[in-house]
Simulated scan of single mutants.
Amino acid sequence: MKTRYVSTIPLDEERLAKDLAHAESFRYSEAYSDYLIGGPWKNAMLWATGGDIGTGLVTTYSYDQRPTFTEYGRQLPYLQELITNLADLSRLQFVRLVPILDTVIIPHRDFLELTDLPEDQRPAHRLHIPLVTHENCLFSEDNVVYRMRAGEVWHFDAAQIHSVASLSRTTRVHLMFDFADRPGSRPLVDVPEAETDDRIPTQSRVARPPLPDDRRADLFRLADILTIDNVREVFAIVIKTHFRWDGGENFAWDTMTALARACKDPAVLPHTLELLRYFTLDRSDSKE
Rank of each mutant, 00 (worst) to 15 (best):
E195C: 00
D198A: 11
E141A: 03
S166G: 06
N230I: 03
D157T: 03
Y278S: 13
D214G: 00
H125G: 00
N143R: 03
L167C: 01
V164P: 02
E30I: 10
L275Q: 15
S90R: 04
E71A: 07
R172L: 00
S204A: 13
F179W: 12
P270R: 12
E233I: 06
F94S: 03
R4M: 09
I228D: 05
L82S: 02
I37L: 15
T84V: 04
S163G: 03
G39L: 01
V132E: 04
L114I: 09
D34T: 15
E152K: 02
P10M: 07
R126S: 13
T272D: 01
V173A: 02
Y35V: 02
L276P: 00
R172M: 02
A262N: 13
K264V: 01
E113I: 03
A159C: 08
V98L: 13
D197S: 14
G39W: 01
L167D: 02
S7Y: 06
R261T: 05
I53Y: 02
R244K: 11
P192W: 12
E71S: 05
A31E: 12
S90H: 06
K287E: 09
Q65E: 14
Q121G: 05
S204G: 06
L219Q: 06
Y72V: 01
T196L: 10
G248S: 12
V268M: 08
A87V: 03
L259P: 10
F177H: 09
A258F: 02
F251M: 06
H174C: 08
T60K: 10
N143Q: 07
F139C: 06
L273N: 01
T103E: 10
N143M: 05
G184R: 08
L281W: 08
E135T: 08
